[in-house]
């Protein structure tokens, strides 16, 4: 089959990275790119921007699968999702435009700090 990569190592890395991505995506609902992008860049030598584009194409069907299971178990509030999706699309358009104006490097640090604070807050028992 010419479609499959001839290299067995590549195939194994792709499948393992895929399964790990799916497990994380299904369990915590976010962060698939954290696994796919490094796997593509460091293990397979794919260029950063191609890794980013490819990771999105992987996470779409993955998130769809996870979302369907959450929905099946009655955890998906449809109307709230609708609001977030709509405003999120507007925001994504703004964000993509901003990309040419600002460097996201320092924003990335800010987001990292926010994640630590929010993460610690969530480890606390909810009052």
């Amino acid at each position: 089959m010419s479609f499959l990569p001839t290299n067995r190592r590549t195939l194994i890395i792709l499948l393992l990275a895929g399964v790990a991505t799916g497990l994380v995506n299904g369990l915590v609902g976010i962060g698939g790119g954290t696994i796919v992008i490094p796997a593509l860049v460091f293990f397979l030598g794919v260029a950063q921007h191609q890794a980013h584009g490819t990771s999105l194409a992987v996470i779409l069907p993955t998130s769809l699968t996870s979302a369907l299971i959450y929905w099946y178990h009655g955890h998906l509030p449809i109307s709230l999702t609708f609001i977030v999706a709509l405003t999120g699309m507007v925001g994504a358009y703004i964000g993509a435009r901003l990309m040419n104006l600002i460097s996201p490097k320092n924003l990335r640090l800010l987001l990292g700090l926010f994640m630590i604070v929010a993460g610690v807050r969530m480890l606390w028992p909810s009052s």
Binding site: L16, G18, A20, N25, G26, P61, S66, I69
Partner: peptide, 16 residues
């Protein structure tokens, strides 16, 4: 290839 593994992982992760 990644997606085929990821979908299988998502089925397990989300059910978990």
């Amino acid at each position: 290839l990644l997606a085929s593994g990821a979908i299988a992982g998502a089925l397990v992760g989300a059910t978990l």
